[in-house]
């Protein structure tokens, strides 16, 4: 991706569900939750298990390895944060620990031909202006 003139939309706070996730990104830690009662992986972050309703969740750190589940290469975006980027890939990555995250797939010459469903990827952090959070992008592993 080329330099952006307008910063991307950022996560905003207070937002108590996702704040712990974003705080961890400052140290380049990709975190997810798991239910201590039924072992279900919970993502996006919440304070309850989506399978059994339990409030007994624990945070874990992902190795940052996974596979592209699906994606689109955006050619036209009227949002100023993205308008000048050129074609970029937005999609879902399935992490090996069992959670699915929306992200950008970067580090390829031509996203339209070089990104594939099922492709192995690893996290690549993009520190954001202000230094408080970092965005987990993914590139070919």
């Amino acid at each position: 991706m080329t330099t952006q003139r307008v910063p991307r939309p950022q996560p905003r706070f207070p937002e108590p569900d996702t704040e712990p996730f974003w705080k961890a990104t400052k140290d380049h830690k990709l975190t997810y939750q798991k239910c201590n009662d039924c072992n279900t992986v919970v993502f996006y972050p919440r304070r309850h298990c989506t399978k059994c309703g339990s409030a007994n969740l624990a945070w874990h750190t992902s190795k940052g390895l996974g596979a592209v589940y699906t994606f689109s290469v955006v050619v036209q975006n009227r949002n100023p944060s993205f308008r000048d980027l050129g074609a970029y890939a937005v999609g879902y990555v399935d992490l090996d620990e069992g959670f699915r995250i929306m992200t950008n797939v970067v580090g390829v010459k031509n996203p339209s031909t070089d990104v594939k469903c099922g492709m192995r990827v690893k996290v690549k952090w993009e520190d954001q202006p202000g230094g408080e959070i970092s965005l987990p992008l993914f590139e070919p592993a």
Binding site: R8, E15, Y44, V74, F82, L85, V90, M102
Partner: peptide, 28 residues
């Protein structure tokens, strides 16, 4: 695409940064 405006929600906080337009959501 997402504008990063309005009250933050868990979903918007996880999805706004990636430049997902409505059409891209269907394209996926």
């Amino acid at each position: 695409g997402a504008t990063g405006q309005g009250a933050p929600r868990p979903q918007s906080n996880m999805e706004d940064p990636w430049g997902l337009t409505l059409i891209a959501g269907y394209a996926m």
